[in-house]
């Protein structure tokens, strides 16, 4: 356990040999961390299966090396908890923790804790190289369950815009005549000249603008639909929302020079495939820019 005789020493320029279980995940991870923290270059890490270890340190036995980590050099041999705190004291970033572990009263609990981990590293902790430890399994299990729950939340809760899943994905009922509806915008200037204006006149791509228009302002007839559900909606509330939409739309389009003073009209077009692609148009209403008001077309 503690300091032993003065046989053996480290080579390769390092003052100490650190001999660890090369088939143990925790030990291998400790080596990785230890090598990074060893700014003073004091330690040389060697696997206990390295045939040269016993030759260089004949006072050690295979059984002892299997039992605990050893630090050997400068006439001293430390093992287990004592070796661990010895290492930490000499790693600049961990030296404070190493110092605390050297306080009186730390040796007993430290030895017990080290002994438990070392004795169970290949059973309860199951940390043969590459095999996940019990801690890994626990936290990875939490991660797995969390990821699957987040992914499944969209479909289970019917959240169509849930950013971690994708339903209903083209599960759209189709009307018998294959009707498809889309919004169109037009402007009527002060002289009464009407022109079509593209939906992206306000700088927002058409697909997004029309989705926003429908989902946040226009509204669906289905009060349970995720986008555009306005339970108890009324024509007055509808006009108020559409006024809010056009205030933003018109000011952005005018700032881009895409909209003259006058009115903006919103139209709903429907293309009916079964009738040779015939287009029907329904004017939904107009927004008077000067008056800042949207009026629904009954």
């Amino acid at each position: 356990m503690g300091a032993a005789g003065s046989r053996g020493g480290a080579g390769g320029g390092a003052a100490w040999d650190v001999i660890y279980d090369g088939d143990c995940g925790i030990c291998e991870a400790t080596r990785g961390i230890g090598e990074r923290l060893d700014w003073l270059g004091l330690f040389r890490w060697r696997q206990n299966s390295d045939p040269g270890v016993l030759a260089d340190h004949p006072h050690l036995t295979r059984e002892a090396l299997d039992r605990a980590i050893h630090v050997v050099g400068r006439g001293r041999t430390l093992e287990g908890f004592e070796a661990a705190r010895f290492l930490m004291l000499r790693w600049p970033l961990a030296s404070l923790a190493g110092l605390l572990l050297h306080l009186p009263g730390m040796r007993g609990p430290g030895d017990l804790a080290y002994r438990w981990v070392a004795d169970h590293r290949k059973t309860v902790l199951a940390c043969r190289i590459g095999e996940p430890t019990i801690f890994h399994r626990f936290f990875a299990s939490l991660f797995i369950v969390a990821v699957l729950a987040l992914v499944a939340a969209g479909p289970v809760l019917r959240l169509e815009d849930w950013p971690l899943s994708c339903v209903p994905m083209f599960a759209t009922p189709v009307e018998p005549d294959g009707a498809r509806y889309s919004f169109r915008f037009s402007a009527v200037d002060a002289r009464g000249r009407a022109t079509e204006i593209p939906a992206d006149a306000c700088g927002v791509p058409e697909l997004r603008l029309e989705r926003v228009l429908f989902g946040r302002y226009y509204g669906s007839v289905d009060p349970g639909y995720e986008y555009g559900a306005f339970p108890g909606d009324t024509p007055e509330a509808f006009e108020k929302r559409m006024t809010e939409f056009f205030e933003v739309f018109a000011s952005a389009a005018q700032a881009r020079g895409r909209l003259p003073e006058g009115t903006v009209g919103l139209r709903l077009d429907v293309v009916r495939q079964a009738r040779g692609g015939r287009i029907e148009r329904h004017p939904c209403g107009t927004y008077a820019i000067g008056e800042r008001r949207f009026r629904r077309r009954p």
Binding site: F170, A179, S182, V221, Y225, R296
Partner: peptide, 29 residues
């Protein structure tokens, strides 16, 4: 971006169809 289409529910109750005569219902993919 692309043209955005919608679907309608023509059997929606008349009082819900005050925005348009067809009862615009859902956003198509």
């Amino acid at each position: 971006d692309s043209t955005q289409f919608f679907s309608a529910r023509r059997d929606a109750p008349p009082e819900a169809r005050f925005r348009d005569p067809w009862g615009l219902d859902k956003i198509a993919n």
